[in-house]
Nucleic acid binder design. Structure first.
Lengths: 242, 242
DNA sequence: TCAAAAGTGTTCCTCATACACCCATGC
DNA sequence: GCATGGGTGTATGAGGAACACTTTTGA
């Protein structure tokens, strides 16, 4: 922000700060999960006009005493019980009439969690929280479809250039699960052999001795993300890329 | 923004909107230019405490009646006279104490112009506007160093994946100028032969019959960006990449 | 004729892509 | 023994990286 102005001196500027130029700020969190071969998003069911019955993203107003990053963490915790999740800022949405009750500008954040680690039944503040497949999402409250799409594009970009996909899977996963995850996020089919070669060459997986059990086909081996080795390779100039 | 809450009903929510939860919003524009082999940024000289004498980005408060995109265009025009420039949103900065006069959250935008098309002498509102080389920038007002760095990273990313570099050069340019531009933005050296082959293979340049004049060496041919052909190739699935 | 930058091809190597069959298990 | 998904290797082509000399001009 610049305060360089000869037209408006400090006093008028200060009065602007107090009065006319203020609007409310909110954050909206797009929390992605992955289950049953499908990419999902955490949604709240709205109970307020004019959006009763519609679903919305996890969001609320930002307090004047907190940063956007802090607000995103606080609101996510209050609304879902999820604590200490790293959220990445995506974009800020400012259409004049995006909120029916007044001028509210909203900054969107996204993150990823393992659905196994979060049971929506918790509902810390009594709101209905549900996982919903991206495919099944229709009309959301406010401009949340736009926000969701923007965050999804960010996810698609990031998942190709950073090993964040693992944070959607259980600690131990099969290569098939990993491939299906990428296919679900990117919306494309990948070649099995090429995918496996690429992943294995990258040397960022730990291969476990255990395999699947009770499957009526050849059991798949379990793998985990090797964060230590990834960090080591990062420092050596490695750049992840699917 | 979500209004789904059982703790705060509509009325208290509305009062929040009117009172406690309001902060001021600003935009800051990072306008890049290129001249004399150097990447430059448009800066204003600050005349207000505690930043007198320091330089700042082109910014101001957003009005409650305009979107952030509109505000960025308006403020850029008022402060510099530059009209109708497409600005891309980069990020929103919200540190509590980023502004000495109160809580101001700022959304950053960036864009590129040809320095030939803009004479800073114009100074529409009487402020000093200057081009400054990225290299020579020291301490800026507010958190503008952080904002500038963030926008520079965005530029470095974008310039590799979209043919936006041309908007920094004169209409007609030499391949050497184009290569130097990329080197200045990315801060790396490029191989002359590989660069020229890549650019020529991309078929997005028009080769003019004219060449440089009055240079004491073999004169270079002039080229222009072939926007029509680029758009045609885009639709055919082409993706620019340097 | 010299200085200064323009312009030009080839080799090597890495990596993306396309593709088909055998293996281990539960039923 | 059969259905189901797991697991593996190779050949081809495209494109990135490294690299040095000749050409054109003005002074």
């Amino acid at each position: 922000m610049s305060i360089n102005t000869t037209h408006e001196n400090i006093n008028t500027w200060l009065s602007h700060l107090k009065e006319d130029y203020k609007v409310a700020i909110s954050v909206d969190c797009v929390i992605f999960g992955y289950d049953n071969q499908e990419l999902k998003v955490l949604l709240l069911e709205s109970n307020m006009p004019p959006f009763e019955g519609q679903e919305s993203l996890v969001g609320d107003l930002v307090r004047p005493s907190e940063t956007l990053d802090d607000a995103a963490q606080r609101i996510l915790e209050q609304r879902t019980g999820i604590i200490n999740l790293y959220l990445e800022q995506v974009a800020t949405f400012s259409d004049i009439d995006r909120h029916p009750l007044g001028r509210v500008i909203s900054t969107a954040y996204y993150s990823l969690i393992k659905v196994q680690d979060y049971a929506p039944e918790v509902k810390p503040d009594g709101l209905k929280v549900t996982w919903k497949s991206i495919q099944d999402i229709n009309q959301l409250a406010f401009d949340h479809n736009l926000i969701l799409n923007t965050c999804l594009q960010m996810l698609q970009r990031r998942v190709r250039e950073k090993p964040i996909g693992f944070s959607l899977l259980p600690h131990k996963f099969t290569l098939k699960q990993l491939q299906s995850l990428y296919e679900a996020i990117l919306g494309i089919k990948l070649d099995k052999r090429n995918f496996r070669r690429k992943i294995k060459n990258s040397e960022i997986l730990i291969e476990h001795s255990e395999s699947q059990q009770d499957v009526r086909h050849r059991p798949a081996k379990y793998y985990s993300f090797n964060k230590e080795n990834y960090n080591r390779k990062l420092e050596a100039g490695y750049s992840f890329d699917i």
